[in-house]
Nucleic acid binder design. Sequence first.
DNA 1: ACCTGAACACCGTTCAAGT
DNA 2: ACCTGAACACCGTTCAAGT
Lengths: 248, 248
Amino acid sequence: MSVLATTLSRKQRELINREELILDTAQTMLNEHGYNYVTMDRIAEAVEYSKGTIYNHFASKEDLVCSLCCRFIKNLIDVFEKAYNYDGSTRERYSAIGIGYSLYHQLHPLDLQNIQTLKNNAVREKVSDEKLCEMETLEQKITKISLNIVQDAIDCGDLDKKHQENISTIVFGCWSMHYGALLLDQSDIPLHALGFSPVVNMLWKNSNTYLDGYQWQPLSDSTDSKLLFEQISSALFGNEINTLKRTA
Amino acid sequence: MSVLATTLSRKQRELINREELILDTAQTMLNEHGYNYVTMDRIAEAVEYSKGTIYNHFASKEDLVCSLCCRFIKNLIDVFEKAYNYDGSTRERYSAIGIGYSLYHQLHPLDLQNIQTLKNNAVREKVSDEKLCEMETLEQKITKISLNIVQDAIDCGDLDKKHQENISTIVFGCWSMHYGALLLDQSDIPLHALGFSPVVNMLWKNSNTYLDGYQWQPLSDSTDSKLLFEQISSALFGNEINTLKRTA
DNA sequence: ACCTGAACACCGTTCAAGT
DNA sequence: ACCTGAACACCGTTCAAGT
């Protein structure tokens, strides 16, 4: 940041700061009052600039929301990088990806709601191509990290070489399972009424079963998977996790 | 239908017919021009009734959309019932659930988009409690069918008795995997650019791996899974499937 | 060159008036 | 009792006027 500060003009720095201010304000408003409350008028009023100025920064409301989503994905990338660097076997590192993903969304449930809003065609078609491209680039980073761990597993023999061609399928399998589970969880389907136990637990069990299906070593029945979950989650989130436990 | 026709007054029948007309019109409009094009004004004009009359049938636009979703879910229930009655092992019948789910959404991709729209909190909070309840009842039917097959598998020994307590987790695992995969697929994430092969294939492979993880007999490597896929899909959808193959 | 906010377009919803 | 459509509220977007 200080590097940027010296190379950019005062004007440019002011523009960047203002854009951050708009995004911060929108995010707070969103977290506190929900999507329908967030209007361009209210944002303009809160940041004390005119609507025209907001439109100088963002081509549309959808572009603004997309910029928020990019922030969330950047946060996720940080989590994924921690998972990648987790000190353990490839299976543990890959498990850390899944745990990181599900716990991040437990900690920030509204982020996923927003991403979901943007994934909706009716909304996405209003986002400018540039913003969409920006988000896709970030999403590819995330995918890349996951793919790399599976590749590591094959290279070191934890995963059989015959799965070389299935790398992307394996990543997609875990991704879709987690994505779907978290969406089902937050969309108010009465999972409890249907006899479902809390989602994070089910996800942890299901992804273990799935990876066992690929014979990814070491298998889950040869490890203390409850302990492993604890270790990974505190490595990724530290004390933040305690907030979740207290509310649970 | 003829039963209803004799017990209801002419007035009541007219009301029901008009409601169907509104829904048909909205659905056609949606399929042809997308969500943003569908407005209450345009629906009213197309059905040649006033907006007030539309509001006599549906408390809000969201209620109307929710009614459409209920239709889609009813269609899915038909597919699930066919899968339940599929003539084969429990594993095959359960596989038929997954195949039915993914192929139905390949055949009617816009249905899922609509359901997704409705799952979004910002939209769902505008749906009336009664409509929401109607939809949840239908969704529970779907879940019930899946749970029953897993129970059958345990009862006949295809699935080990120790999984009795995991029945809902198993259903949730498959459900979330399919739901997530189909949403990722239709939300324009450049799966191909990331090296992902078509979603239906990946789902079929992944759910087999997942169920193998539970040792659900017979395991996928003891069966011709490609042939099984063909058999199930034509049992569920018959000729409809050919449309998909031609476009693929 | 940048900011402003009145004005516009659009859309969901209501309700007094009509039959 | 039911239907109508003008009127209203709201919100995203634009652009002429101002500095």
